[in-house]
Amino acid sequence: MAVGLLGRKVGMTQVTDETGRSVPVTVIEAGPCTVLQIRTMARDGYEAVQMGFRDKPRRLAIRAERGHVAVLSSKRSKAKAEAKIEPVAKANCEPQRYVREFRTDAKDQPVEVGAKLTVELFKDVPALDVIGMIKGRGTAGAMKAHGFHGLSASHGVQRAHRSQGSVGSHAADRGHSGKIKKGKLMSTRWGNERVTIRNLKLVRIDAENNLLLVRGAIPGPNGGYVMVRKANKLK
């Protein structure tokens, strides 16, 4: 796994490719992202790179967030200095709004705390994975939530066209209790969860404006934050 970028979904449109065909694309404003912290096996038990996207106004940032990105003077830091404990490297930037980690391993190019990563990272990359939160749908019926087919539109079905149908019989696997099986799929709260869309073709990189154009849709609303990485299960 390699380092990716954090970004914001701008919206969808269509562009024409070199053969003159229209391609449906999602515009992602990605980076520049600041490397905030490096997670190491020795210190944290796993290897990862923590990155931040978008400055957060200082009035919204709590002291912990400011101390995470820059050196703040505190009793504790003074005590640590006296005890000759080496201070942790800080990125020396504004507090960041969207902070996420990318797992890394030994094969990856090492990055340093404070480095700025831009869309140049994805040069010569054919496809991307995009990770984001899909829109919440609230309580959704069985058809939307689980892809059930519902009941027939005709043949005497009355007011139950989108129903899930029967949920079990008197004896359904639970002795004679007449209870429904555990885990039976029914209508439920759906959406607002993390989703990875894999292998989205990278149509264009606009380095000047920090834009990525990927073919197809990505999770979340326009303006929602997403993680972007090189596709790790390339077709």
């Binding site: 919206g11 449109t13 562009v15 515009v27 404006n209 326009n222 303006g223 934050y225």
Partner: peptide, 21 residues
């Protein structure tokens, strides 16, 4: 999350679309 900047969205979309117009 509401963006504090004034509608950066439209301008970015235009930048992209202008290439195909």
């Amino acid at each position: 999350m509401a963006e504090t900047k004034k509608e950066p969205k439209k301008d970015l979309m235009k930048l992209v679309e202008n290439s195909s117009i």
